[in-house]
Write a protein that binds this DNA or RNA. Sequence first.
DNA 1: AACTATATACGAAGATATTCGTAGTTGTCA
DNA 2: TGACAACTACGAATATCTTCGTATATAGTT
Lengths: 133, 133
Amino acid sequence: MRKKPAPRPTDAELAILRVLWKLGASTVREVHEVLNKTRPTGYTTALKLMQIMHEKGLISRDESARAHVYRTSLPEGQTQQSLVRDLLDRAFGGSAQQLVMRALQAKKTSPEELAEIRQLIEELEAKNREDSK
Amino acid sequence: MRKKPAPRPTDAELAILRVLWKLGASTVREVHEVLNKTRPTGYTTALKLMQIMHEKGLISRDESARAHVYRTSLPEGQTQQSLVRDLLDRAFGGSAQQLVMRALQAKKTSPEELAEIRQLIEELEAKNREDSK
DNA sequence: AACTATATACGAAGATATTCGTAGTTGTCA
DNA sequence: TGACAACTACGAATATCTTCGTATATAGTT
């Protein structure tokens, strides 16, 4: 008896998740106020979406107060990981290398960020050498 | 009077694009035969999808033969780039660094691939130093 | 010429995603 | 307490995605 994995969030759902990760546990109103700035929609639209996300298990809620308080079910990094893995499979035949290449070409990356990435890679390479001993 | 950019392909559409990139220009039957192995569906499903993709501008077709021959409108790399950029914006706040990190964690990458990525990064870093002179 | 195999076109069903209006409930405050 | 503001629940309209059945056309074969 295993629990179903959370389904891939849709575009609108991901927008809400991003707000919740940023703000932490929040009410519908708080989420709506943030979203409304960049993408004007009605309050009940946000409400309905969050109710659906709750049904799907993407978010959980605390109903003890009149205004329910919602929080994400999974940490940001874990969801990002899933999304990347999904894109990897759907568009890159599973090749992380190709995806990384495209990502670095798709957007200018600051020298500091490049250095961090290089460091991560060097760590992975060191780990490989370690393992093969 | 500018042409509309090709919309983001849906899951089923991307699966078809992948076959077309792999095989090159192909008929519906050829595409369907490949897809049918991994995801059994009817022939007319593939046909309909490809007709819609043609309307959207995702693929073009040569109607001179009885069996139309379809080809992708954009090269694989360009579409991959768009998809990565899209995910970057929707889930990573535009941070390529974060996305790369997640990609490398999401999937084991071979030492050879890691080396290639490292090389790309070193090239980008060299280019940065060059530019800042 | 009739039959068969293989095409395309098209409509439509069913599922999912997104949007919002309306109804009804609850807390606040003058 | 009565009016108002804010909240949830719910139904439904609209759009999009995915699937397939049916109608029709065309090429090849006997």
